[in-house]
Design a protein around this nucleic acid. Sequence first.
RNA 1: GGGCCUGUAGCUCAGUUGGUUAGAGCGCACCGCUGAUAACGGUGAGGUCGACAGUUCGAGUCUGUCCAGGCCCA
Length: 972
Amino acid sequence: MSETTETPNYKKSLNLPKTTFPMKANLVQNEPASLKRWGTLGEKKGLYHAMTETSAGRERFVFHDGPPYANGSIHLGHLMNKCLKDFVVRSKFMNGFDCPYVPGWDCHGLPIEHRVMTDLVESGKAAKLDGLSDDNRRMAVRRECKAYADKQIKLQRGQMERLLTVADYEDPYLTFEPRYEAGVLEVLAGLCEQGLVYKALKPVHWSVANETALADAELEYQDREDLSVYVDFEARDADAVYDAFGLEGDARPTATPSFMIWTTTPWTLPANLAIAVHEKFTYAMVRIDGNYTVLAQELIEGVTKLAKSEDVEVLATTTGDRLVGLGYVHAFRDAPPTPSGDPDADTSTCYTVVSADYVTLEDGTGLVHTAPGHGADDYQTGLKNGLPVYCPVRGDGTYDETVPEWLAGMSIWDANQKVADLLTESGHMFHAHTFMHSYPHDWRSKTPVIFRCTEQWFVGVDRETKRDGRSLRELALKATGEDRSVQYVPSWGRNRMRGMLESRPDWCISRQRSWGLPIPAFTLPDGGAFMTSASVLAVTEVIRAKGSDAWFTEDPATLLAHYDPTSDPDAPGVLKDGSVSFEQLTKGQDILDVWFESGSSWNAVMRQRSEGKDFPVQLYLEGSDQHRGWFQLSLLPSLGVMGRPAFRTLLTHGFMVDKDGKKLSKSSGASLKDLFERYGADVLRWWVSSLAYENDVKVDEEFFKNSGESYRKIRNTLRFMLSNLNDFDAPESLDFSGFHVHSIDAWVLGEYNTMRDAVVGAFEKYAFHEAHKLLYKFCNTTLSAEYLSAVKDRLYCDAPDSERRRNTQKTLWFLTDALCKLLAPVLCHTADEAYRALRGADPKDGSVCVHLTGFPERVKLESATGWPKVMELLEGVAKTIENARTERGIDNPLDLGVKLPDPEGMLKWFDRVDLADLLGVSRVEVGGDSVEVLDLREEPRCDRSWKRDGTVKRRADGGMLSDRDALAVGTV
RNA sequence: GGGCCUGUAGCUCAGUUGGUUAGAGCGCACCGCUGAUAACGGUGAGGUCGACAGUUCGAGUCUGUCCAGGCCCA
């Protein structure tokens, strides 16, 4: 006790770590301050602007941001998507590229219009709108939609900036802007020029009450009582049917057999054109109460029980594929209808049995009534089999003149019973009953909807382009296939994309809505459609100047002011010869599919803003659902118009799922806003960088906690390094060539070189997960556990200006600086905070900013080739020491020394103090045959460094000191 | 039902062309330090690699079937 009071207190003579860089990050408060400070950069235009200026003239790396839909707060999906994009842009910038990032929003479309309409209906304003003219009503809706979208964009933009993403938020692309709309119409014109755009009939959900097409989101399902009918259609050729069942001789009945179909919409029977069967199902020829009929074997019992049939006998069975091609006679029509506008059309495939995969055995008869004009499946089947798209129902729900006279003009709802009665009278009705089922209704009028064919615009994927005769499908398969002009990350994206391209149908690009970009098509007085490449370009000029509202507010003559039919080879003859004037044209009512708008962004944003230079762009990056969405729907227009893909690389990420791997429900999990407030953006970004994003990503509150812990490790490492640079000014040069290659500093710089190359390489291949791990390991193991714990002694105890200490500080300064730069793309707040602390930047001086620098270079110093071997040796020795400590009960490793054998003479090159510090022991001796752990407890201990290095003795100031420490405190 | 993908320690992930006893981090347990301290360092225990078959001298790795999950279609 008395000894401790007599010896000098050396603690004050140590160079202990000291820093203002706080241990607690306080991200939630401090990140907004960083944002504000970055805002002062680039002549107050902000960080993005400053980065653009810095990188001007460098090689360009063009990333193109896909537009999120402007609706609602950003969520966990956006978190991953936007962070990954930010990592790309920031790492490319740090790696020496000029990397523009124009963010965008998808602003048109049904979700917004639907939302706005709901509000209008609830507030009672919708009724007032109904009194307005068509154009005026649509303009009113469009104004409301625009205001709503503006609000959403502002909200999302703020949240994305809070995520610390850097992009040109001052000048984003918005799909409702006139310049963007013009860019989309240019693409439409280009496709018209290639002969790919056409108009055709397609069934859609149709509200009879409002006489309008409806989207899925505008349907609500309600119970409804309908008539369920089982109808026999007589075979055209009885023998052919019996042949299919293998019924020969006496077994073959003399009566004509029928095909029994089932439907709950008898009103569509006049439009019946085919019967669909499944090729693999088993069908039976059954005698039911004296009649011969075909139905699926599995359903015989159900159907006959329902009808209370008494005499049921199966004569034979066959498979569906044997029935395909057989003809039948319609129950109440003499001949197939001739499709409108084409009296010479081939109707030979009508009234035959066709094959379809969607036929099920769940209900009905296994033979499906097919009316291509009244059902989506039926339509596809019709296309495959060359059936006309026949729809005898008018917009108001009444039949036109093409149906039998007794139905013409009748409402389809009345027709249900009428058709059933007639079928019963004529003996075709096997059974009829009423039943309840869930049926789609119009969300506004609450009335049942029907499927009805309407004229729609399409982009044909199998039509020959005028350029070289190759179709979009051919071009797309070539571009995604052997041609290899598109790279995929991960590589299976290629297969997925190809699978979809092989089977996709023509693209229906028209919608019957208000909130969107009008398709600039006109109707001629004779009812024909008029839209050519030149006419679209002419209207484009008006829309570029006045926006798409002009379509609703201007008349056809004004819209076509720039159009000259006499110089347009595709113009209709009546316009060319002047027999029809522009005033006689009617404007089309359709708008473009929003996917067409976003799918044209390569032109409307990238080409437009770079005068055509940024095409194709280097990278598109979105969730894997966009293989079918934005990726494919950008690919097709760019192939059509430009003849090549809009992108060189497609990078996809997976989806967020819950901790059990299940789909994330809307209500589950914390909102992103809560996560910001609890963890701060850097922790969330750190988490995103750790993800194997190509797969599904599990997300749970706990993961953010873990990420926060992991973040703190990085932060503490930076803090410890900063705190040991307290008395060190920025080095004049970062030349380490004077360093001894066997020094511990050279070792860590060698480790740095390896890590640095690996991290930069990982960023280059978008392997952020890999960069994350490398950086974490370097901070945690290489620095914290190895280098820093070894150099603590010299940092604390050496004389402040000793060369050894200053060399280590120079190394530390360099490593801290380098780490900040390597971490900057991910931990953008913390990296900048540490970078500024390293330089002692004034809090108000934003000009000191890591984000305007670049990735650090390799150090031009090769550490001694013996280091890996030495480190391996030391690792083994550390185990031996650990064992010796437990065996001999020595708690403090500084009470130990080690004697190392050196048979190869390798150790003589290395500093024994370095080796001792790496092992955490007081001294290392070389010699002997095996590793020997020395108990030094009997040797004197330095009061200052606590080491027993063999030089410790009583000094003039009265303390027990080693030579080094005596020198440091200036005693002898 | 179809296309693409995933399934390795409690959790998050590595595992090259099939080849010793399947690795890392987190978490956990224990220990040390108290001059990085709401920090730091060390040691250790955890796995029949989704299941079942097959190919092979040898399979986490190749093939098939099945189970569970995701995205996109139908």
